[in-house]
């Protein structure tokens, strides 16, 4: 809507700085506030005015926080770091959608031109048993780390690696492995899934290493251990609804989950692990 307006204004030839002013928005935010892990928490409403469409969503909250600090109030705590969509730190469910209404981006890449004047925006933390809320919108995602620690790597010590070109890898395989490897571990898949399942996340790492020759040695034990850890963390099961892939900012494909299932079946049938 705003873009259309912008274009219309541009066509009339009015100076750019005027259009920006005219487009500034007033918004009502409903944000989840929770003092700490033991606090029950609840929603608080805030008004933010004069929001520029060029602001990122997080910058809009920065502005709110500046105001809160000046009023001696605790600013809204949220996770963020790189603010360019690669570190995977930011995590907000905005109007019911992880990373907000636009596809293929993280919250930090969401800009306010995706909203309109007068909008009500509800902001919640990731909700999952395995992602307990630490404070406000900050959640604890170390469960992802523990899944990776269970086997999401190739066991090679530093030094002694063969020449990098010793094993050719077909481009198609390398590209496909790369597609899986682009996962940023943000947890939007878990946040989006009705079961809070981590299958897409786990499948991405399992897939990457299952496809590459370097991952073959530990292929079976890896999937067994990672799936066991995933269960221990309390993530739900996969109902193949596809919500995870639809909300994934990096477009990790559902075919990875099928591959994870295959890897699991293969490992359980063939591995010599009887424990």
């Amino acid at each position: 809507m705003l873009n259309l307006l912008n274009e219309a204004i541009n066509r009339t030839g009015i100076k750019a700085d005027k259009t920006i002013k005219n487009l500034n928005m007033n918004l009502t935010l409903k944000i989840w506030r929770q003092k700490n892990q033991n606090d029950k928490g609840g929603f608080e409403s805030y008004q933010v005015s004069d929001v520029s469409p060029d602001m990122s969503f997080l910058e809009m909250i920065d502005v709110l926080n500046e105001d809160l600090v000046k009023e001696d109030k605790d600013p809204v705590h949220f996770d963020h770091d790189c603010r360019e969509g690669i570190c995977g730190t930011c995590s907000m469910v905005i109007n019911g959608r992880p990373h907000g209404p636009k596809e293929g981006i993280t919250t930090c890449q969401l800009h306010m031109r995706s909203f309109s004047d007068g909008d009500h925006i509800t902001i919640e933390p990731w909700r999952a048993k395995a992602f307990p809320v630490i404070k406000d919108l900050v959640v604890d995602r170390t469960s992802f780390d523990r899944i990776q620690q269970a086997g999401g790597y190739v066991s090679v010590n530093t030094g002694g690696a063969p020449d990098a070109n010793e094993i050719p890898i077909p481009k198609r395989i390398a590209d496909e492995a790369f597609d899986a490897a682009t996962c940023i571990g943000c947890g939007a898949c878990v946040a989006a899934c009705k079961n809070a399942s981590a299958m897409l996340f786990v499948s991405a790492k399992v897939s990457q290493l299952a496809m590459l020759p370097q991952g073959q040695v530990e292929r079976k034990t890896r999937v067994e251990k990672m799936v066991a850890q995933m269960d221990e963390e309390g993530f739900g099961a996969c109902t193949n609804t596809g919500a995870c892939a639809a909300e994934c900012p990096k477009g990790i494909d559902l075919s990875n989950i099928a591959r994870l299932n295959r890897e699991y079946i293969g490992a359980k049938l063939k591995s010599e692990n009887v424990s």
């Binding site: 109007n95 019911g96 809070a196 739900g236």
Partner: peptide, 13 residues
């Protein structure tokens, strides 16, 4: 059990 607290707004893709 995997999601003890539900979302206030649910509006999935």
């Amino acid at each position: 059990k995997s999601r003890p607290v539900q979302y206030a707004v649910s509006n999935k893709s």
